[in-house]
Nucleic acid binder design. Structure first.
Length: 141
DNA sequence: GCCAACGTTGGC
DNA sequence: GCCAACGTTGGC
């Protein structure tokens, strides 16, 4: 099991919208960055990822689950671009803000801090546990 | 709304 | 294959 982080601008696609889609979820389309795509290619069914609101909110608001392996992104003809499907898994009871993350020395190497612009990021198990703890989840899933 | 950071494109 | 120009992202 690997851990990830998905970024989205909430006014384009928010956590609330993902939850409304239920178990089917949605393809995580529109990613046009090789590193982000490669991260999605590495994902397995059942992998979990934080859902982070960028631009507005600037906080981790939920946890999403990968429910389909990487496949062609149907929003482009270009065969280079692929994406996974994700669905809402769990709310983060106490959203973890970027300020919180930056203020925590345990998270100083987190991609959210070091690779600010990458839209699909890997998260280490230690970072995962720490952010879950900060978010008010008793047990990290 | 600004601007820094950074990834991508395209001319050479 | 380099690198300048350009476009986009995202925090502030």
């Amino acid at each position: 099991m690997n851990y990830w982080l998905f970024k989205s601008e909430p006014f384009k696609f928010s956590w609330e919208m993902l939850k409304k889609l239920g178990d089917k979820g949605t393809q995580w389309d529109g990613v046009r960055n090789y590193q982000a795509r490669n991260n999605m290619r590495a994902m397995q069914i059942g992998d979990l990822g934080f859902f982070y609101h960028s631009n507005e909110g600037l906080e981790v608001v939920g946890i999403a689950e990968v429910c389909a392996l990487a496949h062609h992104d149907t929003t482009t003809e270009d065969a280079r671009w692929e994406c996974v499907d994700i669905r809402a898994f769990k709310d983060v009871p106490k959203p973890v803000t970027l300020v919180d993350v930056k203020a925590n020395p345990k998270l100083e190497k987190m991609s959210l801090v070091t690779s600010m612009r990458l839209s699909v990021q890997p998260v280490t198990p230690d970072e995962w546990k720490e952010v879950c703890r900060m978010g008010g989840l008793e047990k990290a899933p």
